[in-house]
Design a protein around this nucleic acid. Sequence first.
DNA 1: GGCTATTTTAGACAGGTCGTCGAAAACTGA
DNA 2: TCAGTTTTCGACGACCTGTCTAAAATAGCC
Lengths: 243, 243
Amino acid sequence: MILDIARRMLVDHGYRGLSMDRIADATEYSKGTIYQHFTCKEDLVIALSIQTMAKREEFFKRAAQFQGRTRERIVAIGVAEDLFVRLYPHHFRSEQIVRMSSLSEKTSPTRNDALEAIERRCLATVAEIVGEAIAHGEVTLRDGMNAEDICFTLWCMTLGAHTLMASEIPLAKRGVRDASKALRFGTQYLLDGMGWQPAMHAFDIGATVARIREEIFPEETALAFGPRNGEKLTNGRRHPSMS
Amino acid sequence: MILDIARRMLVDHGYRGLSMDRIADATEYSKGTIYQHFTCKEDLVIALSIQTMAKREEFFKRAAQFQGRTRERIVAIGVAEDLFVRLYPHHFRSEQIVRMSSLSEKTSPTRNDALEAIERRCLATVAEIVGEAIAHGEVTLRDGMNAEDICFTLWCMTLGAHTLMASEIPLAKRGVRDASKALRFGTQYLLDGMGWQPAMHAFDIGATVARIREEIFPEETALAFGPRNGEKLTNGRRHPSMS
DNA sequence: GGCTATTTTAGACAGGTCGTCGAAAACTGA
DNA sequence: TCAGTTTTCGACGACCTGTCTAAAATAGCC
């Protein structure tokens, strides 16, 4: 309950507007009580992060189970992350705060470890798909890169994209009309560049995304885009010229 | 002078250790004087960001002038960013603070605009290379992407990578031994994936990087890696099998 | 019910920070 | 020497985090 109120406060008034006094006020408890649950303000923010990261982990785990080729399952992870960001837009703010003042002396190690563990499991979920792809010969390691390095590049791309999208930089005014689309294709280019089979133009990504949304994230898709599954996927070609 | 002291304070003691009182103390001025130069604490941090961003702009402009094919010039931008991050490691911290509490009511619009302008010029520098590559036919736009979208994907990748590297996440323990290397190759994969000529294996990237460092950033390279230009570039193959 | 022990809660308090403001000091120019 | 102007100063109010003791609520037992 405390976390729910704190989250709303963070979303509405930013980090500066998040004060322990005001939380105490809003929860009808007093400060002493709040501080019995959280060692400090950052600890509370970490607790918020843990909640959303747990959701992300769930999304990733579900996405990884999509029935399809490894490349499609990577796309599924992308869909999961996209939905996650849409449904929990405040997460990045919390994450930024955590990143900024973590290592922070006072935060309870228990929570810190918990957060780290979830993050690690998220990464492992992706690494597993990469490993499988390597085993199946759908991608081949080159240049001294390993599976984790591959994950890292994907991670960089999505993290960077969402950081920029969540920031106040007016991307549209910088000529980037549809950042989500750019991210989607950028990821595909990256996968193509590492030679991950099947190549981008060899399958219908739009159809795959639609299937993932229907089969794995029906409710989340409805929540994020409205019940009519409104977003139009501009995917270049919808009918692949090669099968 | 104020900024120099503030920067050192930020680097040494983090954002929490950066206090206006302590700055006043260290500068031998008083708080009132400090506040005549900066409207608030964030304004001061923005001023720090402007200084480093100006340096980044200079680096980018110089990199863009590298004599070579467009793809090599993109590599030059990568080298510039790499050196920039190495020489001004605190920049990301400031940037994060700015991002977090920007839009912030009180920061002087002058500085905000100045920072935005520099950032825009950095992006434009890259966009220009992309435009030239398109004009030369070294890369072809597909999937409804434009030059800015291409820049965006590159931006995402580097931003994400440096955010992760600057964070306290122990990448090495996550299996990412050399994040810089992973970023370097990830970028190449991305360029390959968009079909940017010449492809990665068709030229000696290591040699290009060495040339860029020698010709464009000799002093900066010495500062960042020591006078012996110590970093070994693990570039898969050093002697290209195809010319 | 009555009574004690334990847990939970409350909110005053100390320490610290940001940002303001009127007064003091320094400087300028004749 | 002196009036006008600019710069500097540091005390002050408001706020926020985190602590700590006293009061309230609860549980356990007869």
